[in-house]
Design a protein around this nucleic acid. Structure first.
Lengths: 217, 217
DNA sequence: CGGAAACTTGATCGAATTCAAATAAGGTGG
DNA sequence: CCACCTTATTTGAATTCGATCAAGTTTCCG
């Protein structure tokens, strides 16, 4: 939808910005990479993840249009996590140096940044609760509902249905599960008429029921 | 040590601050409470937690001297989580209104705030990885090491030993486990000579080994 | 000192993993 | 657009880590 350039409304100012386009399933940057840019996703979905020494992966968050890739990159060019495109993605980049200068001049930008940080932290807290204390079914239901809510605030949900480019592997890595178990749970959801997932789209068939599952143990 | 008033160095300015003291095992504020203050822990340990509808608890973080209780409270007086003292605690409070005014005038404060936010998010990310992909033993080892590191940066570690006021219940709630299992794991650590926990203190006897456990699956 | 909270230990259970193999869906080059 | 090859998904059986249930013991405060 439209060419959405960020929660921050940085586009309006005098700041230079560069746009890039990448295909699905590319690494936008790897963990440890150094960059001078601050990046915002304009179109498409991406996943931020860390890899464990044994090769397993933990996804930290999914980014949707409007999300900054890493607030950290405002102060530190070395990335903690890697970022992969799940769909074709367009993103725009701002120079960290310029942005920092801007921040010193105009504190409105700072207010916005702090708010974004806070929102990221609140989401992380929700995920911690989910991972720490919920069953596989509840975690997956909650992930779906969380994504619907975030996409909704950006006008990307129609009739309880939205783009859903996640593979079961992504859901597994995000919720600390195996693909095998994600498959079983999702088919249970299907059988019970909670959701319809097909062609990289999801439709919530029974919001009430899905919420009930998400709130259960 | 000393009477540490925060990562932010807010004390230096003209900002009014009030100090409060509470005993161990008190609720400093409950989830949903509304407050006009921004609070920083000066002495003692506290835990931030959310409660699930079935009564179980998930701890989001432990706060040690110097930590702000909630960055969110700069913008929103309603607290998402509750905060309990684990030891006797002294904390200081700043008026949100005044602080916001200060932030608009002096962007240095803003820089500091953004950095704190970022640090909180980075810690949350680590916890997510731990909960999502590690065994009980690895999670507990990692928690201990994380706390040692944070306390170390504030000069509160001596000879691999530091104050450790956590009950097994806290460790369980923080790492998504039961107290029964925490007990078993910690006794295993003891038996293997990794740590010595007694009288609300911990001593790391084999840092190497503990790190190995924390990095294992 | 007495009662409550915290910790320990054993037995049993269950949710999710692991291993293995079959089927389906998707992307690519010719 | 098809054939081929890779990547995803599904299904079953066996296993395991951590939960649950139940008692007993220890520690800590007030």
């Amino acid at each position: 939808m439209s060419s959405f350039c960020g929660v921050l409304n940085l586009g309006r100012g005098s700041l230079k910005q560069t746009h890039e386009v990448v295909r699905a399933r590319r690494t936008i940057h790897g963990a440890g990479d150094v960059t001078d840019d601050f990046v915002i996703i304009c179109e498409g979905w991406t996943a931020c993840s860390m890899r464990l020494s044994d090769g397993r992966r933990q996804i930290l968050s999914f980014l949707i249009p409007g999300d900054p890739v890493s607030i950290t990159s405002l102060f530190n060019g070395r990335q903690r996590f890697s970022v992969q495109s799940l769909t074709d993605v367009r993103y725009c980049m701002f120079s960290r140096k310029e942005l920092q200068k801007e921040m010193i001049d105009k504190s409105r930008v700072f207010q916005e940044l702090v708010k974004i940080c806070i929102a990221e932290k609140e989401q992380a807290d929700q995920i911690i609760v989910s991972l720490g204390r919920q069953s596989a079914a509840a975690r997956i239901a909650r992930l779906i509902l969380l994504l619907m809510e975030r996409l909704g605030t950006r006008g990307l949900v129609r009739d309880q249905s939205f783009e859903f480019p996640l593979r079961q592997q992504h859901i597994a890595d995000a919720m600390g599960l195996t693909t095998v178990h994600v498959s079983r749970v999702i088919n249970m959801f299907r059988k019970e008429g909670l959701v319809d997932i097909a062609q990289r789209r999801i439709r919530i068939l029974s919001l009430k029921e899905l919420q009930r599952v998400a709130d259960a143990k």
